[in-house]
Design a protein around this nucleic acid. Structure first.
Lengths: 166, 166
DNA sequence: CAAGCAACTGAGACTCAGTCTCAGAATGCG
DNA sequence: CGCATTCTGAGACTGAGTCTCAGTTGCTTG
Protein backbone atom coordinates (compact mmCIF):
# COMPACT_ATOMS: atom_id res chain seq x y z
CA UNK A 1 0.00 0.00 0.00
CA UNK A 2 2.87 2.30 0.75
CA UNK A 3 3.86 2.50 -2.88
CA UNK A 4 0.36 3.61 -3.81
CA UNK A 5 0.96 6.72 -1.74
CA UNK A 6 4.12 7.29 -3.68
CA UNK A 7 2.02 7.38 -6.85
CA UNK A 8 -0.39 9.80 -5.23
CA UNK A 9 2.55 12.03 -4.38
CA UNK A 10 3.88 11.78 -7.92
CA UNK A 11 0.51 12.84 -9.25
CA UNK A 12 0.27 15.69 -6.79
CA UNK A 13 3.62 16.97 -7.91
CA UNK A 14 2.48 16.87 -11.52
CA UNK A 15 -0.73 18.71 -10.69
CA UNK A 16 1.10 21.37 -8.77
CA UNK A 17 3.45 21.97 -11.66
CA UNK A 18 0.45 22.51 -13.89
CA UNK A 19 -1.37 24.74 -11.43
CA UNK A 20 -4.02 22.08 -10.93
CA UNK A 21 -5.62 20.82 -7.78
CA UNK A 22 -5.41 17.58 -5.87
CA UNK A 23 -9.02 16.71 -5.10
CA UNK A 24 -10.42 13.83 -3.10
CA UNK A 25 -11.78 12.29 -6.31
CA UNK A 26 -8.38 12.32 -7.95
CA UNK A 27 -6.76 10.78 -4.91
CA UNK A 28 -9.37 8.03 -4.78
CA UNK A 29 -8.91 7.22 -8.47
CA UNK A 30 -5.12 7.12 -8.30
CA UNK A 31 -5.29 4.83 -5.27
CA UNK A 32 -7.74 2.54 -7.02
CA UNK A 33 -5.73 2.39 -10.22
CA UNK A 34 -2.36 1.79 -8.65
CA UNK A 35 -3.40 -0.55 -5.89
CA UNK A 36 -4.88 -3.20 -8.14
CA UNK A 37 -5.56 -3.04 -11.84
CA UNK A 38 -2.71 -3.30 -14.13
CA UNK A 39 -4.65 -3.14 -17.34
CA UNK A 40 -8.06 -1.58 -17.02
CA UNK A 41 -10.84 0.18 -18.86
CA UNK A 42 -12.42 3.48 -18.00
CA UNK A 43 -15.85 1.98 -17.43
CA UNK A 44 -14.41 -0.77 -15.28
CA UNK A 45 -12.86 1.87 -13.06
CA UNK A 46 -16.14 3.74 -12.88
CA UNK A 47 -17.88 0.54 -11.85
CA UNK A 48 -15.26 -0.30 -9.21
CA UNK A 49 -15.71 3.10 -7.60
CA UNK A 50 -19.45 2.67 -7.56
CA UNK A 51 -19.00 -0.72 -5.89
CA UNK A 52 -16.97 0.90 -3.16
CA UNK A 53 -19.71 3.48 -2.76
CA UNK A 54 -17.30 6.25 -3.72
CA UNK A 55 -19.38 8.51 -5.90
CA UNK A 56 -17.34 9.73 -8.85
CA UNK A 57 -18.92 10.70 -12.14
CA UNK A 58 -17.97 9.36 -15.50
CA UNK A 59 -16.78 12.80 -16.58
CA UNK A 60 -14.36 12.93 -13.67
CA UNK A 61 -13.03 9.46 -14.38
CA UNK A 62 -12.26 10.40 -17.97
CA UNK A 63 -10.84 13.76 -16.98
CA UNK A 64 -8.56 12.17 -14.41
CA UNK A 65 -7.39 9.50 -16.83
CA UNK A 66 -6.48 12.22 -19.29
CA UNK A 67 -4.39 13.93 -16.63
CA UNK A 68 -2.71 10.68 -15.67
CA UNK A 69 -1.82 10.06 -19.30
CA UNK A 70 -0.42 13.59 -19.59
CA UNK A 71 1.60 13.08 -16.44
CA UNK A 72 3.08 9.94 -17.95
CA UNK A 73 1.91 7.70 -15.11
CA UNK A 74 -0.60 5.85 -17.23
CA UNK A 75 -0.65 4.86 -20.86
CA UNK A 76 -3.58 4.47 -23.20
CA UNK A 77 -3.38 1.31 -25.29
CA UNK A 78 -5.33 -0.53 -27.91
CA UNK A 79 -5.72 -4.15 -26.92
CA UNK A 80 -7.61 -5.34 -29.97
CA UNK A 81 -11.01 -4.25 -28.70
CA UNK A 82 -12.89 -1.30 -30.06
CA UNK A 83 -12.26 0.92 -27.08
CA UNK A 84 -9.27 2.02 -25.09
CA UNK A 85 -7.52 0.25 -22.27
CA UNK A 86 -5.14 1.85 -19.83
CA UNK A 87 -2.07 0.50 -18.12
CA UNK A 88 0.43 1.69 -15.52
CA UNK A 89 3.70 3.04 -16.76
CA UNK A 90 6.18 1.35 -14.47
CA UNK A 91 9.54 3.01 -14.49
CA UNK A 92 9.97 3.74 -18.13
CA UNK A 93 10.17 0.26 -19.57
CA UNK A 94 8.29 0.17 -22.80
CA UNK A 95 6.67 -3.14 -23.63
CA UNK A 96 4.34 -4.75 -26.14
CA UNK A 97 1.51 -7.26 -25.85
CA UNK A 98 0.65 -10.82 -26.75
CA UNK A 99 -3.13 -11.04 -26.60
CA UNK A 100 -4.89 -14.38 -26.35
CA UNK A 101 -7.99 -14.33 -28.52
CA UNK A 102 -9.45 -17.26 -26.62
CA UNK A 103 -9.25 -16.20 -22.98
CA UNK A 104 -8.54 -12.50 -23.43
CA UNK A 105 -5.36 -12.75 -21.39
CA UNK A 106 -2.52 -10.34 -22.01
CA UNK A 107 1.16 -11.24 -21.82
CA UNK A 108 3.66 -8.43 -21.84
CA UNK A 109 7.10 -8.57 -23.32
CA UNK A 110 9.96 -6.30 -24.16
CA UNK A 111 12.52 -7.08 -26.80
CA UNK A 112 15.48 -4.86 -27.46
CA UNK A 113 16.19 -6.38 -30.85
CA UNK A 114 12.67 -5.59 -31.99
CA UNK A 115 12.97 -2.01 -30.78
CA UNK A 116 16.31 -1.62 -32.48
CA UNK A 117 15.03 -2.93 -35.77
CA UNK A 118 12.11 -0.54 -35.67
CA UNK A 119 14.47 2.37 -35.30
CA UNK A 120 16.42 1.14 -38.31
CA UNK A 121 13.26 0.98 -40.37
CA UNK A 122 12.29 4.51 -39.34
CA UNK A 123 15.69 5.78 -40.24
CA UNK A 124 15.49 4.22 -43.67
CA UNK A 125 12.07 5.86 -44.21
CA UNK A 126 13.29 9.18 -42.75
CA UNK A 127 10.60 8.93 -40.12
CA UNK A 128 11.05 10.33 -36.59
CA UNK A 129 9.32 7.92 -34.23
CA UNK A 130 7.84 9.02 -30.92
CA UNK A 131 5.95 5.95 -29.88
CA UNK A 132 4.88 2.55 -31.04
CA UNK A 133 2.29 -0.04 -30.45
CA UNK A 134 2.57 -3.74 -31.21
CA UNK A 135 -0.07 -6.32 -30.48
CA UNK A 136 0.39 -9.95 -31.42
CA UNK A 137 -2.90 -11.82 -31.42
CA UNK A 138 -3.04 -15.57 -31.04
CA UNK A 139 -3.57 -18.35 -28.54
CA UNK A 140 -1.74 -18.67 -25.25
CA UNK A 141 -0.19 -21.85 -23.99
CA UNK A 142 -2.91 -22.86 -21.58
CA UNK A 143 -5.72 -22.24 -24.07
CA UNK A 144 -3.88 -24.23 -26.71
CA UNK A 145 -3.52 -27.10 -24.27
CA UNK A 146 -7.27 -27.02 -23.73
CA UNK A 147 -7.52 -27.86 -27.40
CA UNK A 148 -8.76 -24.53 -28.64
CA UNK A 149 -7.97 -23.69 -32.23
CA UNK A 150 -6.87 -20.18 -33.14
CA UNK A 151 -9.77 -17.90 -33.89
CA UNK A 152 -9.94 -15.33 -36.60
CA UNK A 153 -8.71 -11.88 -35.62
CA UNK A 154 -12.25 -10.48 -35.55
CA UNK A 155 -13.06 -12.72 -32.65
CA UNK A 156 -10.98 -10.51 -30.43
CA UNK A 157 -13.68 -7.94 -30.45
CA UNK A 158 -15.88 -10.21 -28.37
CA UNK A 159 -13.58 -10.27 -25.38
CA UNK A 160 -15.21 -8.23 -22.71
CA UNK A 161 -15.29 -7.32 -19.11
CA UNK A 162 -18.41 -7.15 -17.00
CA UNK A 163 -19.37 -3.56 -16.81
CA UNK A 164 -22.39 -1.43 -16.16
CA UNK A 165 -23.42 2.05 -16.95
CA UNK A 166 -25.65 4.24 -14.81
CA UNK B 1 -10.40 -0.24 -64.08
CA UNK B 2 -10.16 -3.75 -65.40
CA UNK B 3 -8.64 -5.04 -62.20
CA UNK B 4 -11.56 -3.65 -60.22
CA UNK B 5 -13.77 -6.07 -62.11
CA UNK B 6 -11.45 -8.85 -61.07
CA UNK B 7 -12.14 -7.91 -57.45
CA UNK B 8 -15.86 -7.88 -58.11
CA UNK B 9 -15.54 -11.38 -59.56
CA UNK B 10 -13.52 -12.53 -56.54
CA UNK B 11 -16.21 -11.23 -54.25
CA UNK B 12 -18.94 -12.85 -56.30
CA UNK B 13 -17.19 -16.16 -56.04
CA UNK B 14 -16.97 -15.79 -52.29
CA UNK B 15 -20.65 -14.90 -52.03
CA UNK B 16 -21.65 -17.85 -54.15
CA UNK B 17 -19.68 -20.22 -51.97
CA UNK B 18 -21.54 -18.88 -48.97
CA UNK B 19 -24.95 -19.03 -50.61
CA UNK B 20 -25.17 -15.23 -50.59
CA UNK B 21 -26.26 -12.85 -53.28
CA UNK B 22 -24.43 -10.36 -55.42
CA UNK B 23 -26.52 -7.22 -55.25
CA UNK B 24 -26.07 -3.90 -57.00
CA UNK B 25 -25.16 -2.29 -53.68
CA UNK B 26 -22.39 -4.79 -53.06
CA UNK B 27 -21.00 -4.34 -56.56
CA UNK B 28 -21.02 -0.56 -56.19
CA UNK B 29 -19.20 -0.74 -52.87
CA UNK B 30 -16.53 -3.15 -54.10
CA UNK B 31 -15.92 -0.97 -57.14
CA UNK B 32 -15.64 2.12 -55.00
CA UNK B 33 -13.29 0.50 -52.52
CA UNK B 34 -10.96 -1.11 -55.01
CA UNK B 35 -10.86 1.66 -57.57
CA UNK B 36 -9.53 4.33 -55.27
CA UNK B 37 -9.17 4.22 -51.51
CA UNK B 38 -6.38 2.23 -50.15
CA UNK B 39 -6.99 3.00 -46.50
CA UNK B 40 -10.49 4.13 -45.72
CA UNK B 41 -13.10 4.47 -43.02
CA UNK B 42 -16.64 3.18 -43.11
CA UNK B 43 -18.16 6.65 -42.83
CA UNK B 44 -15.87 7.98 -45.52
CA UNK B 45 -17.14 5.28 -47.86
CA UNK B 46 -20.73 6.08 -46.95
CA UNK B 47 -20.06 9.72 -47.73
CA UNK B 48 -18.38 8.96 -51.06
CA UNK B 49 -21.37 6.93 -52.17
CA UNK B 50 -23.69 9.74 -51.22
CA UNK B 51 -21.56 12.15 -53.24
CA UNK B 52 -21.93 9.95 -56.27
CA UNK B 53 -25.68 9.92 -55.68
CA UNK B 54 -25.59 6.16 -55.16
CA UNK B 55 -27.99 5.60 -52.31
CA UNK B 56 -26.60 2.96 -49.94
CA UNK B 57 -27.49 2.89 -46.28
CA UNK B 58 -25.05 2.81 -43.44
CA UNK B 59 -26.25 -0.65 -42.43
CA UNK B 60 -25.42 -2.00 -45.88
CA UNK B 61 -21.99 -0.41 -45.88
CA UNK B 62 -21.14 -2.04 -42.57
CA UNK B 63 -22.65 -5.36 -43.62
CA UNK B 64 -20.68 -5.37 -46.86
CA UNK B 65 -17.45 -4.48 -45.10
CA UNK B 66 -18.00 -7.40 -42.77
CA UNK B 67 -18.39 -9.71 -45.74
CA UNK B 68 -15.30 -8.31 -47.41
CA UNK B 69 -13.31 -8.90 -44.25
CA UNK B 70 -14.63 -12.46 -44.06
CA UNK B 71 -13.71 -13.03 -47.68
CA UNK B 72 -10.18 -11.89 -46.91
CA UNK B 73 -10.24 -9.11 -49.49
CA UNK B 74 -10.18 -6.33 -46.95
CA UNK B 75 -8.59 -6.00 -43.54
CA UNK B 76 -9.75 -4.06 -40.52
CA UNK B 77 -6.93 -2.10 -38.89
CA UNK B 78 -6.33 0.26 -36.02
CA UNK B 79 -4.47 3.31 -37.20
CA UNK B 80 -4.16 5.12 -33.90
CA UNK B 81 -7.59 6.70 -34.04
CA UNK B 82 -10.50 5.61 -31.93
CA UNK B 83 -12.35 3.87 -34.72
CA UNK B 84 -11.55 1.29 -37.34
CA UNK B 85 -9.92 1.78 -40.70
CA UNK B 86 -9.97 -0.68 -43.54
CA UNK B 87 -7.39 -1.50 -46.16
CA UNK B 88 -7.14 -3.73 -49.22
CA UNK B 89 -5.44 -7.04 -48.80
CA UNK B 90 -3.13 -7.11 -51.80
CA UNK B 91 -1.86 -10.57 -52.52
CA UNK B 92 -1.03 -11.76 -49.07
CA UNK B 93 1.79 -9.43 -48.18
CA UNK B 94 1.45 -8.49 -44.57
CA UNK B 95 2.70 -5.05 -43.65
CA UNK B 96 2.79 -2.58 -40.79
CA UNK B 97 2.34 1.18 -40.55
CA UNK B 98 4.28 4.34 -39.82
CA UNK B 99 1.70 6.97 -38.94
CA UNK B 100 2.55 10.65 -39.04
CA UNK B 101 0.91 12.40 -36.11
CA UNK B 102 1.24 15.76 -37.81
CA UNK B 103 -0.31 15.21 -41.23
CA UNK B 104 -2.07 11.90 -40.60
CA UNK B 105 -0.23 10.26 -43.47
CA UNK B 106 0.41 6.53 -43.42
CA UNK B 107 3.55 4.83 -44.72
CA UNK B 108 3.51 1.08 -45.11
CA UNK B 109 6.44 -1.20 -44.65
CA UNK B 110 7.23 -4.84 -44.40
CA UNK B 111 10.28 -6.18 -42.69
CA UNK B 112 11.15 -9.85 -42.64
CA UNK B 113 13.57 -9.52 -39.75
CA UNK B 114 10.88 -7.95 -37.60
CA UNK B 115 8.43 -10.72 -38.48
CA UNK B 116 11.03 -13.34 -37.73
CA UNK B 117 11.88 -11.88 -34.36
CA UNK B 118 8.22 -11.77 -33.40
CA UNK B 119 7.91 -15.46 -34.11
CA UNK B 120 10.93 -16.12 -31.91
CA UNK B 121 9.35 -14.17 -29.07
CA UNK B 122 6.09 -16.09 -29.42
CA UNK B 123 7.95 -19.35 -29.37
CA UNK B 124 9.76 -18.40 -26.21
CA UNK B 125 6.43 -17.49 -24.56
CA UNK B 126 4.72 -20.62 -25.95
CA UNK B 127 2.24 -18.41 -27.74
CA UNK B 128 0.69 -19.40 -31.08
CA UNK B 129 0.36 -16.20 -33.11
CA UNK B 130 -2.31 -15.74 -35.74
CA UNK B 131 -1.97 -12.10 -36.55
CA UNK B 132 -0.22 -8.95 -35.50
CA UNK B 133 -0.53 -5.28 -35.61
CA UNK B 134 2.29 -2.73 -35.36
CA UNK B 135 1.89 1.00 -35.58
CA UNK B 136 4.82 3.35 -35.19
CA UNK B 137 3.71 6.90 -34.49
CA UNK B 138 5.93 9.86 -35.20
CA UNK B 139 6.64 12.57 -37.72
CA UNK B 140 7.24 11.96 -41.40
CA UNK B 141 10.05 13.50 -43.39
CA UNK B 142 8.09 16.29 -45.04
CA UNK B 143 6.40 17.36 -41.81
CA UNK B 144 9.73 17.41 -40.03
CA UNK B 145 11.15 19.60 -42.76
CA UNK B 146 8.30 22.03 -42.22
CA UNK B 147 9.69 22.44 -38.73
CA UNK B 148 7.01 20.59 -36.85
CA UNK B 149 8.08 19.06 -33.58
CA UNK B 150 6.88 15.61 -32.65
CA UNK B 151 3.52 15.70 -30.91
CA UNK B 152 2.51 13.60 -27.98
CA UNK B 153 0.86 10.30 -28.87
CA UNK B 154 -2.55 11.59 -27.74
CA UNK B 155 -2.47 14.10 -30.52
CA UNK B 156 -3.13 11.32 -33.00
CA UNK B 157 -6.71 11.18 -31.91
CA UNK B 158 -7.30 14.57 -33.50
CA UNK B 159 -6.46 13.42 -37.00
CA UNK B 160 -9.65 13.31 -38.93
CA UNK B 161 -11.23 13.16 -42.29
CA UNK B 162 -14.05 15.40 -43.43
CA UNK B 163 -17.15 13.35 -43.10
CA UNK B 164 -20.83 13.86 -42.64
CA UNK B 165 -23.63 11.82 -41.26
CA UNK B 166 -27.15 12.01 -42.60
C1' DC C 1 -7.63 32.38 8.91
C1' DA C 2 -10.95 34.36 5.74
C1' DA C 3 -11.86 35.71 1.15
C1' DG C 4 -12.04 35.04 -3.36
C1' DC C 5 -11.25 33.03 -7.58
C1' DA C 6 -9.63 29.53 -10.40
C1' DA C 7 -10.15 24.93 -10.97
C1' DC C 8 -13.16 21.09 -10.12
C1' DT C 9 -17.35 18.29 -9.88
C1' DG C 10 -21.79 15.77 -11.17
C1' DA C 11 -25.76 15.30 -13.95
C1' DG C 12 -27.18 14.64 -17.93
C1' DA C 13 -27.37 16.14 -22.81
C1' DC C 14 -24.76 15.19 -26.74
C1' DT C 15 -21.72 12.90 -30.36
C1' DC C 16 -20.14 9.44 -33.18
C1' DA C 17 -19.14 4.78 -34.72
C1' DG C 18 -21.23 0.89 -35.08
C1' DT C 19 -25.35 -2.58 -34.52
C1' DC C 20 -30.02 -4.19 -34.73
C1' DT C 21 -34.80 -4.63 -36.29
C1' DC C 22 -38.33 -5.21 -39.36
C1' DA C 23 -41.19 -4.57 -43.25
C1' DG C 24 -40.78 -4.38 -47.99
C1' DA C 25 -37.66 -5.44 -52.21
C1' DA C 26 -34.53 -8.09 -55.01
C1' DT C 27 -31.96 -12.30 -56.35
C1' DG C 28 -31.36 -16.49 -58.30
C1' DC C 29 -32.39 -21.70 -57.88
C1' DG C 30 -35.28 -25.05 -59.50
C1' DC D 1 -41.23 -17.86 -63.90
C1' DG D 2 -42.26 -18.47 -58.95
C1' DC D 3 -41.07 -18.04 -54.62
C1' DA D 4 -37.99 -19.01 -50.67
C1' DT D 5 -34.24 -16.83 -49.16
C1' DT D 6 -31.40 -13.18 -48.69
C1' DC D 7 -30.98 -8.08 -48.85
C1' DT D 8 -32.03 -3.46 -48.13
C1' DG D 9 -33.13 1.15 -45.95
C1' DA D 10 -34.88 3.84 -42.28
C1' DG D 11 -34.33 4.75 -38.16
C1' DA D 12 -34.15 3.21 -33.30
C1' DC D 13 -30.63 1.73 -30.32
C1' DT D 14 -26.02 1.03 -27.89
C1' DG D 15 -21.78 2.11 -25.68
C1' DA D 16 -17.66 4.79 -25.23
C1' DG D 17 -16.36 9.04 -24.72
C1' DT D 18 -17.06 14.43 -24.60
C1' DC D 19 -19.16 18.74 -23.36
C1' DT D 20 -21.80 22.10 -20.71
C1' DC D 21 -23.08 24.54 -16.90
C1' DA D 22 -24.38 25.62 -12.36
C1' DG D 23 -22.91 24.74 -7.98
C1' DT D 24 -18.64 23.29 -5.02
C1' DT D 25 -13.92 22.94 -3.41
C1' DG D 26 -8.84 23.65 -2.98
C1' DC D 27 -5.40 26.81 -2.20
C1' DT D 28 -3.02 31.45 -2.44
C1' DT D 29 -2.77 35.89 -0.58
C1' DG D 30 -3.40 39.34 2.57
Amino acid sequence: MAHVEREVARFQEFLQQQGLKLTSERIALVREIFSTHYHFEADELLFKMKEKAVKISRATVYRTLELLVKSGMVRRVHLGEDHYHYEHVTGNSHHDHLICTTCGGVIEFHDELLEQRQLEICERKKFTPTFHNLQILGVCDSCRKKGQTPDSPDRVRMIGQTRLRK
